[in-house]
Amino acid sequence: MITAPDAFTAVFDAHYTEIHRYLGRRAGLDVAEDLAAETFLIAFRQRKLFDASVGEIRPWLYGIATNLLRRHRRAELRHYRALARTGPPPDDDGHDQRVVDRLTAGVTIARLAELLSRLSTGERDVVLLVAYAGLSYAEVAHALNVAEGTVASRLSRARTKMREALGVEA
């Protein structure tokens, strides 16, 4: 039971770093520090509302974090636009030239950032909960409180846009 304070301590220890990472990758570290703290404060306040019969705590935390991000949509879009203009920050290890599977060698962080900035908020949420958090469709549905079918349709639309933008075959 996460309503016990010591159990919530364990929740903080187990998930703070990954929630911080998720928020940082989406909106930048400046915003992430604030939002990660707020995510856990809200989770602590809502701990009695958490329903273990509905889903796991991890998607629940990602859901809170994602909802908080919506208040910082501009910061997230600025983050993508900055990446689109300048590529990865200097301390990154040069992923921008990485070639993956069937994707073309010309695909860069800049192009991907541009694409992410063009997705709708709902599409971006499901794509990045799958990509960054590794959540299943059911877990994304639980995190965002939408139907699994909605998750699937948003992912499908996002995939189509990705294929068009990145020039890859399905």
Binding site: L29, D92, A113, A170
Partner: peptide, 19 residues
């Protein structure tokens, strides 16, 4: 095509963990 999402994860910049 699961690799699209793996691709995002692998390509997009990571952030350092909190100190």
């Amino acid at each position: 095509m699961k690799s699209e999402f793996e691709f995002i994860d692998r390509v997009m910049p990571d952030v350092p963990p909190p100190t």
